[in-house]
C-alpha cells in the first residue's frame, strides 16, 4: 500500500481493478485504514476504473479543505465535499463508476451475501448460494448485509449485485460497508470498534462509519454464487415480524426496479430477470431487530433450497 503514499494505487476488488489517485494525506490514511487486506493489482493488470480525489483548488487544499472526485467525466457528476469527508468522495466516485461503466454485468442496487459449503465426503463441491437484499434507502439492507456478513455468510457487496447474464452467477464485489446513524451503534455493539473506520460526521446522510469487509470475503473475492433468494427488507421499529412471499409478474417488476442498468442491457437483462423470477424465491420482510431479520433470512434460505 506504499504506492498510495506516492499518489496512486492499483487494487483489486471483486472482478475489477481500480486505480486510486490522491495526494491528500488524510484520504490516504482513511483509505489505507478501511481497505486494509485488499489484494494489490499487478502493474500489467487492466484498470477498469481510474479515480482521482483532490482539492477543488490549490487554495482549498490548505484553507478549509474541500475535495472532489474526478472519474474522467467531461461533466463531473460529483459534488465537492469538506476535506474531512474525502473518503466519501472516493466511495461515491467508485460507486458511480461501477454503476455507469460495468455493463458486462447486470447490476442490482442491493446488498448480497452468500453461504459457502464445504466439499462433500465424495469431493463434490456445492455451489455457494446467495441472497440479494434490495429496497429503498433506509430500509436496512446495509445493516442486514453487515449482520449476515459477520455471522456465517460471505460478503459480496452492500451496494451492488453483479450478475453475469450468461450463467446467472453473482460475482463478489466486497467493498467496506457504509453504515449510517443508528445502525452504527447496533453493529459496533456486536463487532467492536476495531473493524470500523472513524466516524464521519455531518455527511449528507448523517453520521457514517465504514465497516471493513471480512477477511474471508476478500480471500474468496473471485468465487461466484448462485442467486436463490431475493428479499426486500423493511425496518419497522415496534412492528411485528412479517414475511410475505410474492411471485410472478410482481416479483419480476420488483427485481427489475432494483436494477441499475437493465435498460442499457436490453433483452439480456429481460431474459435474466425473467429466468430469476421463475427460479428464485421472493419475500418482503418486515422486522424490528437485526437478530429477527437475520433469523428470517436464514429460515427463508433453508426454505428456498
Amino acid at each position: 500500500m506504499r504506492g498510495l503514499r506516492r499518489g496512486t494505487l492499483k487494487f483489486k476488488v471483486g472482478p475489477f481493478v481500480a486505480r486510486i489517485g490522491t495526494t491528500y494525506p488524510l484520504l490516504q490514511q482513511d483509505f489505507l485504514d478501511i481497505y486494509e487486506g485488499y489484494p494489490l493489482a499487478a502493474p500489467e493488470d487492466f484498470v477498469h476504473f481510474n479515480l482521482k480525489v483532490g482539492p477543488v483548488s490549490l487554495l482549498r487544499r490548505w484553507f478549509r479543505p474541500k475535495v472532489i472526485a474526478d472519474g474522467g467525466f467531461v461533466a463531473s457528476p460529483f459534488v465537492p465535499l469538506p476535506g474531512d469527508l474525502a473518503i466519501l468522495a472516493l466511495e461515491m466516485g467508485l460507486n458511480w463508476q461501477v454503476g455507469t461503466k460495468s455493463d458486462q454485468f447486470l447490476i442490482f442496487h442491493s446488498g448480497v451475501v452468500a453461504k459457502d459449503f464445504e466439499p462433500s465426503a465424495t469431493g463434490e463441491v456445492r455451489p455457494s448460494r446467495a441472497v440479494l437484499m434490495a429496497g429503498q434507502s433506509g430500509a436496512g439492507k446495509s445493516t442486514l448485509t453487515a449482520g449476515l456478513a459477520y455471522n456465517g455468510w460471505r460478503l459480496f457487496s452492500d451496494e451492488f449485485a453483479l450478475m453475469d447474464t450468461s450463467d446467472l452467477q453473482l460475482y463478489p464485489y466486497p467493498r467496506p460497508i457504509s453504515l449510517k446513524n443508528q445502525s452504527i451503534e447496533v453493529m459496533v455493539e456486536r463487532l467492536g470498534e476495531e473493524v470500523f473506520s472513524r466516524p464521519y460526521l455531518d455527511t449528507p446522510k448523517g453520521t457514517i462509519r465504514y465497516l471493513k469487509a471480512p477477511g474471508d470475503s476478500l480471500r474468496n473475492g473471485d468465487r461466484p454464487a448462485r442467486l436463490d433468494l431475493v428479499v426486500f427488507p423493511e425496518y419497522s421499529p415496534g412492528a411485528p415480524a412479517q414475511v410475505a412471499e410474492f411471485e410472478g409478474a410482481e416479483a419480476f417488476a420488483m427485481l427489475r426496479g432494483a436494477s441499475v442498468n437493465c435498460d442499457r442491457l436490453g433483452q439480456a437483462a429481460f431474459d435474466a430477470i425473467s429466468d430469476l423470477t421463475g427460479r428464485c424465491k421472493f419475500f418482503h420482510l418486515q422486522y424490528d431487530t437485526l437478530d429477527m431479520a437475520m433469523r428470517m433470512v436464514e429460515d427463508l434460505m433453508e426454505e428456498a433450497a
Binding site: A249, A251, G266, S274
Partner: peptide, 19 residues
C-alpha cells in the same frame, strides 16, 4: 419477446427497449 407468469405476461419490445 414474451414471458408468462400465471395470468400475467411480460413483454420486452426490442424496438423501444421497454418492458
Amino acid at each position: 419477446v414474451w414471458r408468462s407468469f400465471d395470468s400475467y405476461s411480460l413483454l420486452f419490445n426490442e424496438r423501444s427497449g421497454d418492458t
